[in-house]
Design a protein around this nucleic acid. Structure first.
Ligand SMILES: [Zn+2]
Ligand SMILES: [Zn+2]
Ligand SMILES: [Zn+2]
Ligand SMILES: [Zn+2]
Lengths: 154, 154
DNA sequence: GGGCTGAATGTTATATTATAACGTCCGGTT
DNA sequence: AACCGGACGTTATAATATAACATTCAGCCC
């Protein structure tokens, strides 16, 4: 939920995420198959959203539907999120606990931080209500510079 | 900025929008050429975002780069906005006065309402600041049901 | 275990969205 | 008239995503 620092223990992120995914799938009675797990692992290789065809290439011998089906599964169970601006996918750090999608996206290093800001959500919900609009899903994507990249070239 | 009612005088929307575009281009010293104006007019045929290839077809005899170039121009001068979730484009009702992109998108009829909500912007800006993130651009896309479509099927 | 069934995956083809590269035309300037 | 730069035309191709159908596999009943 915070911005990942460049020297954090990312191996730990991966372990945590895969563990949480196992748990969430068990809880839901969903099957985290080999391909699905491999795709999830690849998504978690970094905190930068990754495109479907990059995943495809990393998988090696697969065809597009394979990776899109895995992505659909992971999206459906809240294990990853799609970043619309980038046509790319990023791991969700707190599956289960979902209201989808508020992201800070770094222009420079590409990494993403997921927010879960009740104030933002409330502000949009309120604006929607004032317009007589029944809100179903909300996407917030902010682009800019992460703390690390800001430090580098000010 | 409000949701367009089904029986509003849309011809007026178009006239207003084209007038404002002329004005804005004059102010900026930009050339609103024939193709660019025609694309803008097509975008304004409804309040539902329209895709590039639908525009292309409506234009008749053009090739993709023609419409994408026109869209790039219109985006650059704030005369239209891109809806990331839909890969589609919608007219901007208040060019010049821009902070880009907060939209309510109706699932049913497809129409879009552009917000300009300072509270939403402030909430995101604040969250960004707390994360040490330097905000450059903000995209907010809310999906749901507009007032008219809500009335129809409850 | 042997077959049944539905979910998951493989495979091929194609749709949809977007851009690269290069040539031509046209309007304004000198 | 010659020049220049921006706008447009044209062709090809890149990048993202899905349709349609065949095959395989896991779990279940017997
Ligand atoms: Zn990490
Ligand atoms: Zn960064
Ligand atoms: Zn209108
Ligand atoms: Zn509607």
């Amino acid at each position: 939920m915070n911005f990942p620092s460049p020297q954090h223990d990312h191996h730990n992120c991966i372990t945590q995420a895969l563990g949480a995914a196992e748990e969430e799938c068990r809880r839901r009675g969903a099957r985290l198959t080999d391909i699905r797990r491999r795709v999830l692992e690849l998504v978690w290789r970094s905190h930068a959203p990754i495109g479907a065809y990059a995943l495809l290439q990393a998988l090696g011998k697969a065809a597009p539907p394979t990776v899109y089906r895995a992505l659909d599964f992971l999206l459906a169970h809240g294990l990853i999120h799609r970043i619309e601006k980038l046509n790319a996918y990023v791991g969700c750090a707190h599956p289960g606990h979902d209201q989808a999608g508020q992201f800070l996206l770094c222009r420079q290093c590409g990494s993403a931080a997921e927010l879960n800001d009740a104030v933002i959500e409330a502000a949009v919900r309120d604006a929607a209500r004032r317009h007589g609009f029944e809100l179903a899903t909300l996407t917030v994507e902010a682009e800019g510079l992460c703390p690390a990249c800001r430090g580098e070239s000010p």
